[in-house]
Simulated assay, not measured.
Amino acid sequence: MGGAMESTRELVRLRSEVKAWLETKIPKDVELPTPGHDLGEFWVQWTLNFRKELGAKGWLAPNWPTYLGGGGYSPAASQVIMDELRKRQLPPLGIHGTWTTTLRVWGTEEQKGRWLPPTLQGEIIVNQIVSEPNGGTDLATKATTAVRDGDEYIINGEKGYIGALLPPDYLFILLTMDVNGPRYENLGMVIVDAHDPGVSISHRTTLMGLTQSSFTLNDVRVDPEDIVGGERGGWHVAQTLLDVERGGNGVTLEESRDVEKREREYWTKQAP
């Protein structure tokens, strides 16, 4: 059904298939935690497994192209799948469409190929962490820094997030690339391996009962290939991130077509 014009009958059949499958997968006798609160060991493990099963069926990101790890479904079919998922009480599935869409706009094709397919197929978790414990609302001021050291960058600092998160494999973070550089032009968006020995993650419960996570980075080394949008392009990448977060597309229709054209040309060449 992916990519084709479906009849009403086909969409009804797809909806029935999704509903029946979900009925066999979602626990009925285990209470789901309140949104924003700690998921607990059971729901974390269940969600990680559920994501992989959804990804294998192309239902975790049904509207994304197959060459990026999505299901390749048409808008109508994707809507059917997402509607059925939204009807259920589910823990956060950890897709973070804001960072994936932002990477699609600003990332190189090699970066997309490295991180998007395993994310959209449920194999890895990437946490989008932009804020800092003492950063307030000033997006352009980041105490976390990346300092050039030969062919690598060394990252030090602390990031924070309030809300339930699945254990991350990577972090998508905004930081300062040049402490002496002009405001807005000294930022970079970097993807960091969360399993690096220099990354430590801690959690605490706020007075409101929400989970607050802290990510401390001590001498974490990254390659320039891990920087999204260029070494001084972080502010522009962050603006796209915010636009998508607020319901926008991050790009104009013409820019979106250019992105898709470059992708098709690249992935056509990669096909065996």
Rank of each mutant, 00 (worst) to 15 (best):
N127D: 04
T47P: 08
S131K: 09
N127S: 08
R104C: 10
V80N: 03
V105I: 15
L48I: 14
Q128H: 15
R86D: 12
R114I: 08
Y67C: 03
K142W: 10
R51W: 13
A56N: 11
L139W: 15
L85Q: 05
E84P: 03
K52C: 06
G72D: 11
G94A: 08
K87Y: 07
E132M: 08
L93F: 00
T98D: 15
G70Y: 10
I81T: 05
P92V: 09
S131Y: 08
L116T: 01
G55Q: 13
N63W: 12
W46Y: 05
G69M: 11
Q121E: 06
D138V: 14
E132V: 07
G72V: 07
L85A: 05
T141E: 15
Q89P: 00
Q89G: 02
Y67M: 03
K112Q: 05
K87N: 08
E109I: 06
S74H: 04
P75T: 04
Q89N: 02
Q111S: 01
L68N: 12
V126W: 02
T145D: 08
G69H: 12
V147A: 11
I129Q: 05
K142H: 12
R114S: 06
K112P: 03
N127H: 04
G70L: 10
V147Q: 09
E123D: 01
W115E: 12
S131L: 09
T137Y: 14
Q121V: 01
T101E: 02
G72T: 11
I125E: 13
Q89V: 00
G122A: 04
V80I: 05
K57D: 14
R114D: 06
N134K: 14
L68V: 14
I129N: 02
P62I: 13
N49E: 15
K87A: 07
T100G: 13
G122C: 04
K87I: 04
R88E: 00
W106Q: 07
I81P: 04
R148L: 13
Q121I: 02
P133N: 09
T66R: 14
K142R: 15
T141C: 09
E53W: 06
G135V: 01
G107A: 03
I81A: 05
V147C: 04
V105D: 09
R148I: 09
Q79S: 15
S78Q: 09
G94H: 08
N63I: 10
D138L: 14
T137N: 15
I95P: 01
W99Q: 04
T145Y: 07
L116D: 02
G69I: 10
R86L: 09
T137A: 15
T66P: 06
R114P: 03
L120P: 00
P92Q: 08
W46A: 01
